[in-house]
Design a protein around this nucleic acid. Sequence first.
DNA 1: AACGTGACTTATT
DNA 2: GAATAAGCCACGT
Length: 104
Amino acid sequence: MSKDNKELFRKVYEVVERIPSGKVTTYGAIAKSLGMKNGARVVGWAMNGATDPKIPCHRVINSKGELSGRKFFASEDFMEELLTSEGVEVKNNKVDLSKYFWQP
DNA sequence: AACGTGACTTATT
DNA sequence: GAATAAGCCACGT
């Protein structure tokens, strides 16, 4: 219906907030959880409009484990610093999803 | 309404 | 493994 878009955004934020410290998830996983097959782009768009500072967008990365959105943070290295600070090992701007992947 | 863009994903070459 | 193409959803102009 009409305000599905807002609901969709709200759901994305809720899932991202639920990501435990020291873990990461992918755009596709979130999108799938929301019922979208390939809504990964929408998840990224939702992050762009994330007015809530409590949303740990740095824990959301792409399927390859790359920190795709690091450029959107205060500093390009800030995202890597946050993840490393929480116990996530970042190698060459990539994270080992086999160990740190969290599924909603 | 149409076109282009984007913090994506998967498959193909 | 890199580059290309196609697919999907939402937003701005």
